[in-house]
Computed example of a mutant assay.
Amino acid sequence: MKKVLIESYQCENIGKTIAALDFKESFLERDFLTINVSDELKTAMYYYAVGICHQTYHLANPELNLYGWDFLEYGFIDIAKNRPQLLEADYLVQLSTAQLAKEIRPFFAPQNIAEQCTLDNIEERCSFWIHMAELIKDSGLSHLEYIQKSNGVPNYFYKKLKHTVAYSDHLQKKTSFLMKLLEDAKLIQFSNHQDLIPIMDYHMQRVLLRTGCVEVLDNDLKFALQNKLRLQNEQELRVACISAMKQIAQHSGYSVFKMNDVFYTMGLSCCNQEALCQKGSCEKAPCTLALAVELDQHQQCIFEACCKGKNDEDYRKYWQPQVNTHYY
């Protein structure tokens, strides 16, 4: 019996709402995408940053108001500028995980004080980092040459990168996110967007559940999601969310990768621990969605007219699946 159902009519409603949005060019002009380093170094920076980005609940620099991925971007910019060897495959393959962990701690700590590093599971992440470097080293190519060899064919990435532990997720969240960054930074242009797999992380799953784009049919799963209980397997839900996102993108007229700029940023600010539709303000200041999308004012959620969670607390209770994974 199916545990979840894609509500196509709701995906259409949400997609048509997104179709009317104007995206800000400035969102693609942030430092992480425009940093003044070589294309080789920039490619390597994205490759390693995305590879170690999963479950970053504790990664934070409150002094700079940077949390999760935003602080990871900041740290990797610092590495690219001040310790670029940590983005060079020849150097990385000579390091142990403990050595690499020691080197990177200051970059993910307030005021670069290594003892205050907030990047958890650091040796696991460093083992992924080194394994990613080994793939590049063994190829005999530079990071830039490795991605250029794809000729903009999406399936090249999906087939090649799965041979690293970091990018081994068969639903390809990290791989798609890396591809989006490479395209946003104008390092590559994908020839066929129909072959792109939507980026699906936990923030986006939460928004899809609360809006009613994905309905939960199984009472045990519903209870677990609404009460933040640990799940052994959330694959059926995540597959449904990916399919729903494809439908939403189709109705919006935008690429599936562009959906990340709406759902991820919304999940960070407008629809997180508290919902904008109930509180009247976002959790983050400035609102991350407002950084990506043109908004005249933001006392109301952009999905308020069609979101099921706006008037139904049962939908607002949904939380993302609680799973132990390095896939996202």
Rank of each mutant, 00 (worst) to 15 (best):
V50Q: 01
A19F: 12
C271S: 15
N324I: 12
I136L: 13
P110I: 04
K279I: 13
R125T: 07
M204Q: 11
E7C: 08
Y328K: 10
Q297H: 15
A285N: 15
I35F: 13
Y46Q: 05
L171E: 03
E115V: 02
C11H: 11
N36R: 11
M179L: 09
F263I: 00
T17I: 12
I248D: 03
E115F: 07
L66M: 10
W69S: 00
H163T: 15
F223R: 15
N155H: 11
F32L: 12
L59E: 02
S176Y: 07
Y327M: 05
M204G: 06
E134P: 04
N36Y: 09
L33N: 08
V293H: 01
L33T: 06
C241T: 03
K186L: 14
L100T: 02
D70C: 04
G15S: 06
C277M: 12
L208H: 04
Y158M: 04
M204V: 12
A275Y: 07
S8F: 02
Q273Y: 14
D138I: 03
H298G: 04
T164L: 06
E304G: 08
K2N: 14
S281N: 14
M45N: 00
A109L: 09
T43R: 06
C301A: 13
I130P: 07
Q300Y: 12
F177M: 12
K222Q: 11
K102V: 03
F223D: 15
E294R: 11
D138S: 09
D218Q: 06
F223C: 11
K173Q: 04
Q189V: 13
E274A: 00
L231M: 10
F223V: 09
T56W: 07
L135E: 07
